[in-house]
Design a protein around this nucleic acid. Structure first.
Lengths: 132, 132
DNA sequence: GTAACCTTGACACGACCGTGGTAAGGTTAC
DNA sequence: GTAACCTTACCACGGTCGTGTCAAGGTTAC
């Protein structure tokens, strides 16, 4: 028994069992499973859960936000799409040349999306299992 | 008049005036102001607002999430804290339960897309290929 | 083999999000 | 100078988030 069950993990991390399942669903922690399907939290998961609490408190974050940051990190298409949009920020008083590069950026974005669609959800699963 | 007022901007972007103010408060767009305080949307803002709609629909994002991504980009302390936590992923033999999260996200995306389709009339104006 | 624990799924509920509306008052254009 | 538009601020309302609890059933340990 080198791994804790959900109630034991709850006690040592301060999260409720309910929240441990929720956090898992967010993709923020992925405990092993016993043959019968019980979650088994190892030292890595426990540490992660404790520091997660600190992260949320210190940075004033919500679980969903950390989950989203994780998605941003793992999903290349998503990250690129968001970054592209964010990077097109100022460029206000000067009008003329901006239009050109805007449409260029836009094309770039459409190319990315098309590529994403081409290698559909197969890629999503591949990416994840790969990185995990 | 080389910049549009909020109602004019609303018409050409498909967002409601209400939402344009909301989006500004999220920090996603910063229109100039007239001396009297009126918002003035230039070509850059208008383009940004149109592509924003596409970004949300195509990536299944919420406004708050894009706003958070922007915070992540601008706030070094925040970004570092989150990245540090995420990078400490416990080395784990890849396992199934990610699927749960994936299908959940997928469902969310489908819900969002469905909703987008429902208000298709407003969305029609948002066509990406349109320029100013 | 049974008590204690685990699983998923559902209902519940306050808080916040996205969105619309309205009110009270200032700005712009002609 | 007035009509039409803008500003901020507040109320409203369905939907989602974070969280608890309970139910029906499977697993584990002794």
């Amino acid at each position: 028994m080198d791994a804790l069950t959900i109630h034991e993990a709850a006690e040592t991390t301060g999260w409720s069992p309910r929240m441990l399942r929720y956090i898992e669903r967010m993709g923020l922690v992925e405990p092993e499973r016993s043959t019968g399907g019980y979650r088994l939290f190892g030292p890595g998961e426990l540490q992660r859960l404790r520091t997660l609490r600190g992260l949320l408190d210190e940075q004033g974050l919500a679980l969903g936000e950390v989950g989203f940051a994780r998605r941003l990190q793992h999903d290349d298409v998503l990250r690129t799409a968001v970054e592209d949009w964010l990077e097109a920020e100022p460029a206000r008083p000067a009008h003329v040349p901006v239009d050109d590069w805007l449409t260029w950026e836009q094309d770039k974005h459409e190319r990315l999306v098309a590529e994403a669609a081409r290698r559909a959800d197969t890629t999503a699963t591949t990416n994840l299992t790969e990185t995990l």
